[in-house]
Amino acid sequence: MSGKKILIVDDDQHLLLGLTARLKANGYGVVSATDAISAIAVARKEAPDLVILDLGLPAGDGFLVLERMRSLADLLATPVIVLSARDPAGNKQRALDAGVLAFFHKPPDNHEFLMAIRQALGETTALSTFLKT
C-alpha cells in the first residue's frame, strides 16, 4: 500500500464513486473535484501525487485545467492521466502535447488503467529486475 494520493476530476458522481472504490482498494488515497475551477483549488490544497482528469467539465474543460496546472509551480510536475469519453482522434494528441502521460477512452480496462497509474507514480517494479542485469 503506497498511500499515495490521487485527485479524480470528473463531473459524474457515479464514476467518482465507482473509481474511488477501485483506487482505495488498491491502496491509494482519493480526493475529487467535479469542475474545472474546483479542480485547481483542490489540487493546490491536497497536492495529489497524480491527477485523473476528464476533458468535458463544467466551468471550462480539461485542457483549461491542464493549462492552469502547468502555470502553477506547485502543480507543474504533477503527472496527469486523461480519462475521457471524447473521441481520441484529435483529443489524444492534443492532450499528449499538453504533457499528459496517458489518454484513456471511457470506459477503460481496469488492468491497463491501474498499470498506467502505477507507472505514472513510478511504482512499477517489473523494471528493477532488468536494471539490475
Binding site: 459524474d12 477501485r22 469519453a85
Partner: peptide
C-alpha cells in the same frame, strides 16, 4: 460512454 463507465466500475 459516461453511464457505461459508471456501470463498468460498479
Amino acid at each position: 460512454r459516461t453511464p457505461l463507465t459508471a456501470i463498468y466500475f460498479f
